[in-house]
Design a binder for these strands. Sequence first.
DNA 1: ACCTGAACACCGTTCAAGT
DNA 2: ACCTGAACACCGTTCAAGT
Lengths: 220, 220
Amino acid sequence: VPRRPQIDRERVLAAALEVADEGGVAALTMRAVAQRLGTSPMAIYHYVATKDELLDGLVDLVFAEIEPPSPDGPWREEISRRMGAAREALRRHPWAIGLMESRTSPGAASLSRHEATLATLRHNGFSVAATAHAYALIDSYVYGFALQEATLPVDGPEGFGELAEQMMPTFDADYPFMAEIAREHVLQPGYDFADEFDIGRELVLDALETLRMGQTAARG
Amino acid sequence: VPRRPQIDRERVLAAALEVADEGGVAALTMRAVAQRLGTSPMAIYHYVATKDELLDGLVDLVFAEIEPPSPDGPWREEISRRMGAAREALRRHPWAIGLMESRTSPGAASLSRHEATLATLRHNGFSVAATAHAYALIDSYVYGFALQEATLPVDGPEGFGELAEQMMPTFDADYPFMAEIAREHVLQPGYDFADEFDIGRELVLDALETLRMGQTAARG
DNA sequence: ACCTGAACACCGTTCAAGT
DNA sequence: ACCTGAACACCGTTCAAGT
């Protein structure tokens, strides 16, 4: 008599996501995922062939959290929202950024969101070439910002000031311009690196408008 | 009588860089580095306290390959060159992108290049706030582009076409806009994703000019 | 001071076995 | 079909020992 499976692939991935969120990629072992599911390490191998396949699935799970743009909405709002959603997903799961570099085959969620973004651009007056340029720029900005955010030594605006003040003596001597920017910008009350995202995003959206108008030398 | 050391910290890092370049971060084990140096695994621990410290050193070694801008040169050329140099360094060592996410304390090379870029902006009419915004945008674009480049399934323009042609049947059915962009852009003779870098870079530089002129709502 | 080798607690994964 | 447990070849790192 075949047993009812206690777990399935979806639960394996969900457990792995929790483990990674709590302890980072270093804590993500097959044994830890198994323990969270209350089974033996080898039980997992009925749902993912290898740990590498599990990592592929995990990255795609993160992409699945990014709400795709509506192809027929106003492009600037749609793309802006998609950029924000992507950045927030990567902020929730910063370990995914480090994984992305080594996984070269995108999953279904990644592809369908990719497709939706291309559709949004093509439906809104972007030529094929402009769409290609725009897409590269959008993702470069979002991924790069997320990577910078992940490498910040502190999270949120509060700790930022403390840390910077600790470092000021070193900074003042060896890095006068870093000291200046710390003193006059980063250490100002209310500063939050996260706010930089909106500023850069508007500039990127302006650049997309330039591409859309075909004012830029485009190939093909 | 104290022995002359056979190796030093610099040689350990250089050996580790070679191992990572050849086999990726998965191949980078303390034992592999030791073997390349012709010593025992534990000999390395006289020059780096832990593997984590070795990884920090490796990332900084990659940053050391990026030629810093000259603070007194014309900012657009200087920043453009620095962006290109950073992207090339990360292309040579794509595994470094994945490592960056988890290392929060920058090394000396990273800091001094950071400082040189800030100096270039401040010497060229960028306000403190504009410099902060510009810096975030520059690094977002460069890191994000490098990450995208690392995740491409193939390297260089040739293999690109082959791969895309293999995937066309799937694409046509499920992803019409990806199929379109593949057919009309990526599969065109002479296409190279690397060319997208220059297009996005010019747009980013235009955005920096906007920041420099103070035409954008800036905080503080 | 510098290096070695055995050992420990892990890890991903294979395999043979159980229901 | 689904799960288990022992085992294997690794890994980073500790420790005691050698020169």
